[in-house]
Computed example of a mutant assay.
Amino acid sequence: MPSTRWRALGPGSILGTLRADMRKATREVMVVGPFIDDYFAEATVASCPSGALLRVLTRSPASVAPTFEEHMEAALARFRHRPVTEVRTLDRLHAKLMLVDETIVFCGSANWYRYSLEESLEVVLRGPVSDAPTLLDEVASLWDQAEVWKGERSSSRAHVPTPAARSPISDGFRAEVLDPIAAAKLASVRGAFVLGTKTTSRKARR
Rank of each mutant, 00 (worst) to 15 (best):
I181Q: 15
R92C: 10
A65N: 14
G172T: 08
T44G: 03
E138Y: 05
I104F: 01
S130C: 09
S155V: 05
S141G: 08
A158S: 13
R19K: 15
R114H: 11
V64P: 05
A43R: 14
E73M: 14
L57C: 01
V148M: 06
A75I: 03
A140V: 00
S120Y: 09
I14N: 04
E73F: 01
S156I: 07
K198D: 11
V29A: 06
L99N: 05
A65S: 15
V160Y: 02
L178I: 14
A20E: 15
D38A: 15
S188C: 07
R19F: 04
T44M: 14
R114W: 02
G172S: 08
A41C: 05
T26N: 07
K185N: 09
A187Q: 15
P133M: 05
C48D: 06
L142I: 00
G151N: 04
G172D: 07
S156V: 08
V148N: 06
P61W: 04
S188M: 12
F79Y: 12
A62H: 11
V56E: 02
D137G: 12
D137R: 09
V129M: 03
D91S: 11
G151T: 03
F193W: 10
W112T: 02
P168F: 07
V148L: 13
V56Y: 02
T103W: 05
T199L: 12
R27L: 09
L178A: 10
A182Y: 10
C48V: 15
Q145H: 04
I181T: 15
L195T: 12
E118K: 07
S201G: 01
S50I: 09
S3N: 10
H159F: 12
P163Y: 06
E119D: 10
K150R: 14
S201E: 15
S47N: 10
A132W: 12
L195F: 13
A62W: 09
G172W: 07
M30P: 00
G127V: 05
A187T: 11
